[in-house]
Amino acid sequence: MKTLLAGSRYLAVAAYVLFALFPLYWLLKIAITPEKLIYTQGTALWPSSVTLDNFRSVIFASDFLAYFRNSVTVSLVSAALTTVIAAAAGYAFSRFRFKGKSLVVVLLLITQMFPLLMIIAPIYKIVASLGLLNTLTSLIVVYTAFNIPFATFLMQSFFDGIPRDLDEAAMMDGCTRLQAFRKVILPLTLPGLAATLGFIFTAAWSELLFALMLINSNDSMTFPVGLLTFVSKFSVDWGQMMAAGVLALVPSCLFFVFIQRYLVQGLTAGAVKG
């Protein structure tokens, strides 16, 4: 009986793993299937021969390298800006008591609750009237603002984990508070900063709808927009589309492998406290 139970438990775990990985496996499989085999062996579990041609043509003979560069620029700059700005705000939440604090918290929570699509039209109009349509700048500003509330709460929880005595000791030794923040507290939160940076990077990397609305020139398309345009134009070039898809997956997966264990730990700590 016991072994039966344990066996079914392993079976269930295996089912979850299969369900999680199968779509990604399929993406990779079609990406390495030679073009002439797609229609005959498209639904086979493994093609009779494999090729890297699809990757080669995506990287060297299409605009995807430019999309990739645009996406990396937008995501990196948004992530860096958001992390710096949110670190300052998170520090204020963690270290100061002041009038209006709960009001600011409520304000940040509100921004997480309403449908973001509500502001897609006003943002389009504002960006258009500033002459910033089709620029990466507009996306960077929008993504930075969108991600600040969440990043602020995240940074606050990291700062809460560092004893206040440390800032106070530094200030006793003659640092200003800003110096104490920069020289003592920030270095201690480096893992937290890295986590925040990663979260915002992946969020900006995957954003599609605002990018579709604000960008329509080929030069400044981000990866999601470029891939979707490619799909609607050349919807039969399966191998190339999936090769592009695999490439889009790389940055997020790298980040995720690095972060995921830490994620449960962080949440557990929070849950114990609450």
């Binding site: 990604l24 995957s206 999601p224 997956l249 997020s252 980040f255």
Partner: peptide, 8 residues
């Protein structure tokens, strides 16, 4: 799957 960009 949580890390896979939505559009993908």
């Amino acid at each position: 799957p949580w890390a896979v960009p939505t559009f993908l």
